[in-house]
Each structure stands twice: as C-alpha cells, then as structure tokens.
Design a protein around this nucleic acid. Structure first.
Lengths: 128, 128
DNA sequence: CTGCATCCTCGAAGATACTG
DNA sequence: CAGTATCTTCGAGGATGCAG
C-alpha cells in the first residue's frame, strides 16, 4: 500500500471547508471498511457464519472447496484480528476449532443480506 | 481462475435432494455475484456513482487518488461489461466520457447503502 | 482529456510436506 | 483435526510513453 504515486498529488485540503460529511469523507471511510472485507474468501467465509452459524475449520473447507488450507487459515486470522470473527479452540483430541461471528461481526449482517438479495435478483434476471 | 485443485473434489450432488435453497446454493450464487464486485477499486468506483451521480474519468481519478489510470480504465470496463456501469462518450474536443450506473447497477444501491452504514458505525465505535 | 501499449516488479496465492 | 513452514509461480498492478 501507499505507492510512490508519482502521477498524482492528493492535494490535501485544509479541512474546514465542509461540515463533516462529504462524498469524499464517505469514500474514505468506506475505503477503510472495505479493506477489512478485502480478500477473495472473506465474504464467502462470512456467508458461512451468517445467521449465527458456528463452523469448524474443516466444515469451512468443505463449504468452500476452491480455497486452500493456507488461505482459509490466513483469511480467518485476518477476520479475527479485525474483530469480525471469533475463534474458539476446544482442547481435546482430536482438536476442534470453531468459528463464529462476533457481535461486531453481526453488524455486517445487513450487508451480507443485501448481497444475498442482490445475487438472488441477479439469478432471476434473464440477461444480467 | 479454476485452478487444478488437486487437493479437493467438489462432489457435485445429483441435485434433487433439496427444494432449491440451501446455504450451499446460496453460497454458490453469492460467489458468482461476488466475482462481479471483485477488484480492489470496483466498490470505490461504485460509491462515486452511487445515488445517480454522473462522473467523468478525470473526476473519478481525483476522487480515488491511489488508483492508476490503467486500473481505473480496466475496472471501469469490467463493470461496463458486467452491465453495472454505463459509459457515454461525447464526441468533442477535448474528449469527454461520462460514467454512471445502469438500471441494473442501481440494484446494488442497497448493498452500497448497507456498507456505508456499516462503515459509519465502524467509525463511531471506540474499539472496532 | 481519455485512454491504450509496453515493460517490469513484487507479493498474493498455490503445491507440498510436516507437526501438535 | 487444524493448522504451520517452505518453495515457487504467476499475474495483478505500477511506471512510463504514446495516441485519438
């Protein structure tokens, strides 16, 4: 991130020109939020946990066949670090680890729901 | 896309076991929809067009300072190909190209709106 | 102004093997 | 079962220059 970008200057206005809610500030805030959801598997994972579901590592693996263990573990840990997902380890043999949404993660439900509805409409539309 | 995935088999059930709406089918549909939104700049672009805004290429450039011309053009063309964004060329000197959401693109508004609200909550939360 | 063409870098993601 | 470690590839994305 933060490339040299020799091609553009961000100009950085003196901050006092607007009351506090411009499309620009919105875009910035959204950009930050988007960073959390970035990653090819994050949303897919969240959809598995959507609705209070609790899933084991291997269940997620089965649910998302194209993901590798490495990527699944990595994205899960990022989601955990961002406070979206909770990871619970059961110290037993064989090991058992369960993933679920945190309370904060639940706040994503409207987003997931909107996405779900959109993809549904997308299917029923003749020529998307 | 479509890696060799030697590590997993998708199993492909005979399709008749469920009425037609399982978490699995939902996940698949969402996966398809997600492909359209995939790309580091797509959502940022859509937020600029959100609410019926019409934006010129250079305006989008200014609004998203970190994106390069190349990526902006590329992602715009992908969005156009997916029917989300409309591109209107005004044959004049100097050239002028305007981008806006298609009707189908407008159907993404609930998603964008939910994201916007989420990022707002995210800001006002002490420890995210 | 709005792009496309080219070259090149660099890190995301895959394969594979190993462990508590 | 649920990961980590290591090596490698591959293409997304950046820099730059040119064109309609």
């Amino acid at each position: 991130m933060e490339p040299t970008r020799t091609h553009k200057k961000v100009s950085d206005p003196p901050a006092g020109e607007e009351p506090g809610w411009t499309p620009v500030t919105a875009a910035l805030a959204v950009g930050e939020a988007l960073r959390v959801l970035e990653g090819r598997w994050k949303l897919l994972i969240l959809f598995q946990l959507f609705g209070g579901n609790v899933r084991r590592f291997s269940e997620l693996e089965r649910a998302i066949p194209e993901v590798t263990q490495k990527m699944l573990a990595q994205q899960l840990r990022q989601l955990e670090a961002d406070g979206i997902v909770r990871r619970v380890v059961h110290p037993e043999i064989p090991p058992k680890v369960e993933y679920s949404l945190t309370v904060w993660g639940q706040s994503l439900c409207p987003v997931l729901d909107a996405l779900l509805k959109w993809s549904a409409r997308r299917e029923e539309t003749p020529e998307a």
